[in-house]
């Protein structure tokens, strides 16, 4: 066999193997999406948005309490976690730079990012739920904020790092004070990247179940009290999907569908922002 023939054959094998792997991976993805969408759409109707969860057998049954709870918990975690994460990332990139403190924060947040979310849940359980004596939405918000923080902090740090040093120097050379260089030049240069990080951070915590089981727990009825347990789409989905009742299982599919569409939407918006940025 000549060297050329050998090369052609190896080339062919590698191509077939990699294509096959891609097809298998994508195949599962589309299978999941297909099952989710077909069951989800079947389960969807207006009642889901209008009614709270009812015992099995009742007609007017929905996910209102879980949707509202989800919005409150994820929304509040975002409101706290995003500015905190962006400011901490700004400290790392613009002020702390290569200092010991900054490097320690980077290491710790990298560890936190890969820490299982259930660990965060049990931490908040220990420091908030036990002292308070009961589950609360607040504890859920804190847990999700803790999970979101390192993601946003590190993306912000990385994205600000990508802004060329000469751009900062050019602004300083015009007589700009440091805070204006950060706010007007560096943030602007890293805008799309930071926004993508925020989207991914929110999408990540929106799908969390384990930390909420320990903290906000669940409520079968509508509640907006931050000091009381609160329903969320994920925990509700877990409860309904594992129940033996067909109409509860149907609600579980609906919750899965809504949640997936929400996260898919966030990801698509994130991509569009990046595309739009490149197009300019």
């Amino acid at each position: 066999m000549t060297a050329i023939q050998k090369r052609v054959i190896i080339n062919g094998i590698v191509m077939v193997l990699s294509t096959l792997s891609a097809v298998i991976g994508l195949g599962f993805l589309f299978w999941i999406l297909f099952i989710l969408v077909s069951n989800g759409i079947e389960a969807m109707n207006w009642d889901i948005f209008l009614f709270e969860g009812a015992p099995p057998g009742y007609a007017e049954s929905g996910l209102k309490q879980a949707l509202v709870g989800q919005l409150i918990i994820v929304g509040a975690a975002t409101v706290i976690g995003v500015p905190l994460g962006i400011l901490a990332g700004t400290y790392l990139s613009e002020y702390g730079q290569r200092s010991k403190l900054a490097e320690t924060i980077r290491d710790v947040s990298d560890i936190m990012m890969s820490a299982p979310s259930i660990v965060v849940g049990s931490f908040v359980y220990a420091v908030m739920v036990i002292p308070m004596g009961h589950f609360s939405a607040l504890a859920g918000i804190v847990a999700l904020t803790i999970i979101m923080l390192p993601i946003i902090l590190r993306t912000t740090d990385d994205m600000l790092h990508l802004v060329p040093t000469t751009l900062r120097e050019a602004a300083f050379a015009l007589g700009a004070p440091k805070y204006k260089v950060v706010l007007q030049i560096v943030y602007r240069g890293a805008k799309a990247g930071i926004l993508t990080g925020v989207m991914l951070g929110v999408a990540r915590v929106a799908g969390e179940t384990a930390p909420l089981l320990f903290t906000s727990f669940n409520d079968n009825y509508m509640s907006t009290d931050l000091f009381a347990p609160m329903a969320s789409l994920t925990v509700t989905m877990y409860n309904y999907a594992t129940s033996p009742y067909a109409d509860w299982q149907r609600l579980g599919w609906a919750a899965a569908f809504i949640l997936s569409m929400f996260i898919l939407g966030l990801n698509i918006i994130g991509r569009l922002i990046l595309l739009n940025k490149k197009g300019k």
Binding site: L167, A171, F172, G175, A176
Partner: peptide, 20 residues
Amino acid sequence: LISLRVNIGMIFQKPTAFPM
């Protein structure tokens, strides 16, 4: 340094157009 840099401007090796 701020007023110094207003009076003494600088042009860099690579163009440094701000993202605006």
